[in-house]
Design a binder for these strands. Structure first.
Length: 352
DNA sequence: TTACTAACCTATTCAACGT
DNA sequence: ACGTTGAATAGGTTAGTAA
């Protein structure tokens, strides 16, 4: 069993291959949508056959369009200050008849669920073959199962969407978006405002990305993007960061220590990656403000590292892989540099 | 690089069915 | 009546693709 299998988050299983609907297909769907935005099973089946795509894809398309329609109606409501159009009287559409799974089928699904709660399309199709259940039903089965069997291990290992680490909440927005956008530069999000890359770049793209971001997802810290674009930003707040340079790896002082040093001696930066406070160009009150921000950042990073260690301790009982020893790298660091070897090494995770 | 959007997620609700 | 669980929905995010 490799690490990705253990955590179910280092490497996501592939999604269903994305299909692109052609104009003809779209026109047909739109025509049906205008007639009835909530088609019943028979209609969806008919459309699936006619358009040569699966019934679940038809359903997804209708879901998406209902969403769009609602949004449009909402906007019209405010623009025209008119009451939204009266909905057509809802005709009760026939539901798909309840699927009855045999004991054999259920056993196979449960077994698969225990191995992986988030099976990709390949796994679902294999399960469909093994059980004779349509893939779309398997997908639904896993959704229902996840909802009804949260499971502690999952809650921690997956670092469930509602983050359990209070220190990670970066804002108190009421409806936290569930994940840190993978596109967001965390350097930007975490940087004190006086750094050159502070959160001031509010070009359209950035605005869009920032608006989505409220909670840092530790799962994504470990997962990273696999392309090294933002991965290193997360690691080593308290621990030395080893980064590959032109002349081999070199060690950088931990971000936390840099901030701590700066807090103690704001005038000195001594090659730190974190710029010093600039007393010549900033009023004392402003510097005081930045010191406070530094203090908050420092506290945040401390919580972050403590929490991350506790999670790693739980995930990987063999301490040598994560404890801040003399020479060992943190697993994240190892993974960033040697993805193949670590997944092999860390195969000591307790089996279920 | 950006916009679009299919695929996917969780949370919630409805409803069939067995007890 | 109640619990279990498949099906459906809303509203959100992720990630592939075309422009």
């Amino acid at each position: 069993m490799d690490l990705s299998c253990t955590f179910g988050l280092l490497e996501k299983e592939a999604r269903r291959r994305r299909i692109i609907l052609n104009q003809n297909q779209k026109n047909t769907l739109l025509a049906w949508f205008e007639k009835n935005p909530n088609p019943d099973l028979a209609t969806r089946g008919h459309l699936a056959k006619e358009l040569g795509i699966s019934e679940s894809q038809i359903m997804t398309w209708f879901q998406k369009n209902r969403k769009i329609q609602k949004q449009v109606e909402f906007e019209c409501y405010f623009e025209e200050s008119q009451a939204p159009k009266q909905d057509k009287p809802k005709v009760k559409e026939a539901r798909r008849s309840r699927t009855h799974f045999s004991r054999f089928q259920t056993d196979i699904l449960i077994e698969a669920f225990e191995k992986n709660r988030f099976p990709g399309i390949a796994t679902r199709e294999k399960l469909a073959q093994r059980t004779g259940i349509p893939e779309s039903r398997i997908h639904i089965w896993f959704q229902n199962r996840r909802a009804r069997h949260p499971g502690r291990k999952q809650a921690t290992a997956q670092l469930s969407q509602n983050s359990q680490c209070p220190a990670l909440k970066t804002t108190d927005q009421p409806a936290p978006s569930k994940t840190l956008s993978s596109r967001l530069s965390v350097t930007t999000a975490l940087s004190p405002p006086h750094t050159p890359s502070g959160p001031l770049n509010l070009s359209r793209g950035h605005q869009k990305q920032l608006s989505r971001t409220t909670v840092l997802q530790p799962s994504q810290v470990v997962q990273g993007r696999g392309d090294g674009q933002n991965s290193s930003v997360f690691i080593g707040h308290l621990s030395p960061v080893v980064t590959p340079g032109e002349e081999g790896f070199h060690t950088q002082a931990p971000l936390c220590l840099q901030i701590q040093e700066r807090l103690q001696d704001p005038g000195e930066s001594s090659g730190s990656a974190v710029p010093p406070l600039d007393s010549s160009t900033r009023a004392p009150a402003v510097n005081q403000h930045f010191r406070e921000l530094d203090q908050k950042l420092f506290t945040f990073l401390q919580h972050w590292d403590e929490w991350l260690r506790s999670m790693l301790a739980e995930w990987i009982p063999d301490e040598k892989y994560w404890s801040p020893g003399e020479s060992e790298l943190h697993p994240q660091q190892v993974q960033l540099q040697q993805p193949a070897s670590i997944s092999h090494q860390v195969d000591t995770t307790p089996q279920q």
